[in-house]
Amino acid sequence: MIEVRGLAKYYGRQSALRSLDLRIARGDFIALFGRNGAGKTTFLRILAGLARPSAGSCRIAPAAGGAGRETAARTRGRIGYLSHHTSLYPDLTALENLRFFARLAGVPADDAFLAGRIGAVGLAGREREPVRTYSRGMQQRLGIARAFLHDPDLLLLDEPFTGLDQAGADFLKRYLVGARRAGKTCVMALHDAELGHQLASRLVVIDRGTAALDAERDSLPLDAFRARYAAILGPQPPAGGGAS
């Protein structure tokens, strides 16, 4: 589904990615590990079409041929990207935020559908309050609902569990398990080796801008993975986020 070849991104003398090769098949659930600044975010941004690579290529198999603006837009419609930002307008209510993005995404924008999505992340009853009044954790939960509003085939998540409250983490885990069962493709950047091992079907560690480890989860038990992980990146930092 996705073919990444010699992908590199430079910022002057710094390089975020040197030369990354990765083939992602439909249905792959990838947990992406690496130090801070190893290029995880850059890689996800390039996959999402928000950044252009400096060298190399990154092809996402299009639904239909062609390379025009139409095709690019349609490809974006199949991608859901959850970044560090919530991408919500603080002065609009939850409902208004989702309605706006639903209209842009071309999915049903009726209140019942949207309220259902808001309820699913545990915010029922607060949908008519401005997002500004939400706590950080609530905003993040709504951000998840927003990012996956259009039920994308390809999920991109950038450290989604960082700072997320328990309710949000539970929802996100449930959502990811469901998505994996539904055969969706996913790339998520993580720090927590155990959590990644639990959720993913494939484990990739990026170091110095290239893939230092790329293994099927089932062929690599958690302890063995931990050892390999520590050998590449040093000892695992204390588990971050609200994930258990």
Binding site: K9, Y10, Y11, G12, A51, R52, S54
Partner: peptide
């Protein structure tokens, strides 16, 4: 603009 690719574009 610091990022060279972005600057160029």
């Amino acid at each position: 603009l610091e990022d060279p690719d972005r600057r160029a574009m």
